[in-house]
Amino acid sequence: MPDPTERPARHAAEDETAAPATPPGRSLRDLGRALLRPSASHILLAAVLLVFGVGVGTQLTTKAADDPYATARRADLIQLLDTATTETSRLEAEIAQLKTTRDKLQSGVDGAKVAQAEAQNRLDNLAILNGTVGATGPGIRVVVYDPGQKVSASTLLDAVEEFRDAGAEVIEINDSIRVVASTWFAGANGSVVADRTAITWPMVIDVIGEGHALEEAARFRGGLVSQVQQLGGSVTITQETSVRITAVRSLPQNQYARPA
């Protein structure tokens, strides 16, 4: 290793005679004066310091680039890489596990959604069947004129059964009586009662279903129309694209029957 303090001492001893004689033991003031006064030796000094400056500047920017791995050694880098690889595989395993959990939960949610849609569908069907909600859809409107009030409860029951056979889904009488499974008809001496409600004339029957089939169910020989005509009344039937039924029934509470 060269020694810039020792070796210059020997060389300088020879050069010192050529250089302007300066007594040993200079002060800081001498240094400033020497630096301010340009001389030939300053050029070599400047060249060396320029090289040194470039090196320092380069190192500063390398550090400023904030890349601690650029100057790291191979062994350290290998260790870092090993750590990173281990961490990566650990995290990947965690990702896979979490994905499995997520998929499980997802399928559970989907299953629950399907079940809920199914249940809602059944609920809607049962609600319409039980008459607890209003309904709308294509169907027919039947108006029965019976000036002699001779139409009997059994005629009415036959008509309802024929409508059901023709695929009626919802039947309503006089915008107030919802005909459901438990609806009953009774009557005597020219008055007809359905579900405790007296039927007023002319009677209006709204039916939701396939319009043509429902109309045929009323018009066939021996059906509602011909029966009423025999009794001296008349019937008008109009097929409508949208029949709106608003009469509802409260849900009866089963006293004995329980779901099995």
């Binding site: 810039p4 060389h11 300088a12 007594p23 300053h42 070599l44 060396v48």
Partner: peptide, 11 residues
């Protein structure tokens, strides 16, 4: 400061 400086030796 010792008075033994030489630019050649320094370089």
């Amino acid at each position: 400061f010792d008075g033994t400086f030489s630019d050649r030796v320094f370089a």
